[in-house]
C-alpha cells in the first residue's frame, strides 16, 4: 500500500480542477472562512465537498440540451435563456455557475452571451470578494423576453448580433 492509496490529499489546483473553478477563487473563498487558508494547502475530499457547497457551485449544463436548433450558437442562447428562466433567483449565483459544464468554444461563446444578457438588463452583475455574482436583471419584461428567446421567436438586438 502506498501513501496515496491511504491518504487522499489534493492540492488546491487539483481541487479546483475537480470543481471546475479557478484555483484563485478557492483561495479567495477559503481566506474569508474562519481560520482562513489551511496551514498547509492540501485538501481532503470532505474539505473539497464543503468548499463546493459553501461557494454555492452549480453546474448549469449538467442536464442535456432539449431544444433543437440548426444554428449551434442560437441553440446555446435559447438553452441558456431556458435555464435562466427556470432558475431560482431568490439569491444571487456565481457568474461561473452559468458556464459550468461547458468547455472550449461553447464556454467562450456563453460568456459572451452572458455579457449580452447583462447589457439587456436580463442579468445584473455584482462584484464580490469571491468573484463575480449574478442576479436576476431589472428588465421590465424579463419573463416575456426570455420566453421569446427560448421559443426562438424573437431576440433582443444585442443578442441577435451574436449568432447572425
Amino acid at each position: 500500500m502506498t501513501y496515496s492509496d491511504l491518504f487522499q490529499y489534493f492540492s488546491l489546483s487539483e481541487a479546483a480542477a475537480q470543481l471546475d473553478i479557478h484555483p484563485f477563487d478557492i483561495a479567495r473563498y477559503l481566506s474569508l472562512q474562519k481560520g482562513g487558508l489551511p496551514v498547509e494547502l492540501r485538501l481532503t475530499p470532505q474539505m473539497i465537498a464543503q468548499i463546493a457547497e459553501g461557494m454555492g457551485l452549480q453546474n448549469w449544463w449538467s442536464e442535456p440540451m432539449e431544444i433543437e436548433d440548426d444554428n449551434p450558437k442560437r441553440l446555446l442562447i435559447r438553452e441558456l435563456s431556458k435555464r435562466i428562466l427556470e432558475a431560482d433567483w431568490s439569491d444571487a449565483t456565481r457568474a461561473d455557475n452559468l458556464n459550468r459544464g461547458l468547455a472550449g468554444q461553447e464556454y467562450a461563446f456563453v460568456r459572451r452571451v452572458i455579457n449580452g444578457f447583462i447589457k439587456c438588463q436580463l442579468l445584473t452583475p455584482n462584484s464580490t470578494l469571491t468573484g463575480l455574482s449574478i442576479q436576476k436583471g431589472a428588465h421590465p419584461n424579463w419573463e416575456t423576453v426570455l420566453s421569446t428567446m427560448v421559443d426562438g421567436s424573437s431576440f433582443p438586438e444585442e443578442i441577435t448580433i451574436l449568432f447572425s
Binding site: 492540492s11 488546491l12 489546483s13 487539483e14 480542477a17 484555483p23 478557492i26 483561495a27 479567495r28 487558508l37
Partner: peptide
C-alpha cells in the same frame, strides 16, 4: 492553471490572493 501538485509559486500566489 494546472491540475497537478502545487508548486511553491502556486502556493505563494494562492496565499497572497487569499
Amino acid at each position: 492553471p494546472n491540475s497537478g501538485e502545487d508548486s511553491l509559486h502556486q502556493v505563494l500566489t494562492f496565499r497572497c490572493v487569499g
